Simulated assay, not measured.
Amino acid sequence: METTAAPATIRTRVNIPLHFPDGYETAAQVHTFNGLTDGAEHLALVLGDPDPAETPLVRLHSECLTGDVFGSARCDCGPQLREAVERISERGGILLYLRQEGRGIGLYNKLDAYAIQDSGLDTYEANTVLGLPEDARDYTAAAQMLAALGVDSLELLTNNPDKVRGLRDLGLNVTGTAPTGVFATGTNLRYLEAKVTHTGHSIALASLAA
C-alpha cells in the first residue's frame, strides 16, 4: 500500500567533501527536508553523478553512533557505511542517513541491549527483554525523501529483506538489490548470525568458513 503521508520538501542543499580514516575521499550533496512524517533530522547524500535515465543505487543506512563514529566492532555498520559511500559514488545514487539508532530504539536503549547481550542473548532477544520491538524502524520518511528527490524507482544496496518490503509497501519500485559486503569479525559474528537466522538477511557467512 502507498503512504498517505503528506509530501516532504527539500529544505537545504549543501556540498560537503567527505574524507574517511582510510584516506578515501569523495563529495556529497547533502539534502535536508521539511515535512518528514517522523519529525527526525534525516539526511540524503547524493553521491557521484547519477544519470537521470538510469535507476539509481540507493542505501538506507540507519544511524549507528557507536559503529559509524567510534568504530565499534560489535556490529558491521561502520564498514557498511564506508563501503556504501564508495559504491554509490562510483555509480551515482543516494545514501539516506536515517536517524534510527539501534533499529529505532535509541542510543541508550541500544547500549542497554548490549549489556543484556553480554549475558548470552542475541540482539533481537535483548530488545524483547527490554520490552521493546525487535525492529522499530519505519521507512515512511525514507519514501518521502526519495519522492522529494524525484526518485520512484531504485536499486537497493542492502542485505535486509525488510527494507525492500518496506519501500515496496510504500509505493516505490525496487527493481532489485545489490548485497553489501561481509564484514565479519570475532566480535560481531554472533550479531551477524542473528540477522541471518532471525530476519533473513542475505549475508554469506557460510563462505567465511569455506
Rank of each mutant, 00 (worst) to 15 (best):
G102M: 09
Q80R: 01
L65E: 14
C64V: 07
E63T: 13
R99G: 05
G106P: 15
A84V: 04
V85M: 13
P56L: 06
R91E: 14
D51N: 15
R87S: 11
R59C: 00
Q100H: 12
P50G: 09
V58T: 04
L65K: 11
E86Y: 02
D68Q: 10
G71V: 06
C75F: 12
A73F: 14
L95N: 02
G78R: 09
P56W: 07
A73V: 15
P79M: 03
V58G: 06
R59V: 02
R82P: 06
T55Q: 14
L81I: 01
H61L: 06
Y97T: 00
F70R: 12
A53K: 14
L65V: 11
R99D: 13
G93V: 00
I105Y: 08
Q100C: 02
F70H: 11
C77H: 02
R82M: 02
E83F: 00
F70D: 07
P56Q: 09
E83I: 00
G67W: 09
G78I: 06
S62C: 03
C64T: 09
G78E: 07
E90C: 08
C64K: 10
R59S: 01
A53I: 12
E86C: 09
G71N: 01
P56A: 11
S62I: 06
A84H: 02
L96G: 04
Q80H: 03
L65H: 11
P50E: 04
L65M: 13
E63I: 09
G93Y: 00
S72P: 09
D76M: 06
L95T: 02
Y97Q: 03
R74I: 13
R87E: 11
V58A: 03
T66H: 12
G106Y: 07
L60W: 09
S89H: 06
P50K: 10
D76A: 03
R59M: 03
G104E: 03
A53E: 15
E86F: 03
C77Q: 01
G78H: 08
L60P: 08
P79L: 04
F70E: 00
C64Q: 07
L60C: 03
L57G: 04
G104T: 07
G78K: 11
P56T: 12
G106L: 08
D76G: 00
R82C: 00
E63W: 10
I88M: 00
A84M: 04
I105F: 04
R103F: 10
L81G: 00
G67D: 07
R103H: 07
E101H: 09
P52H: 14
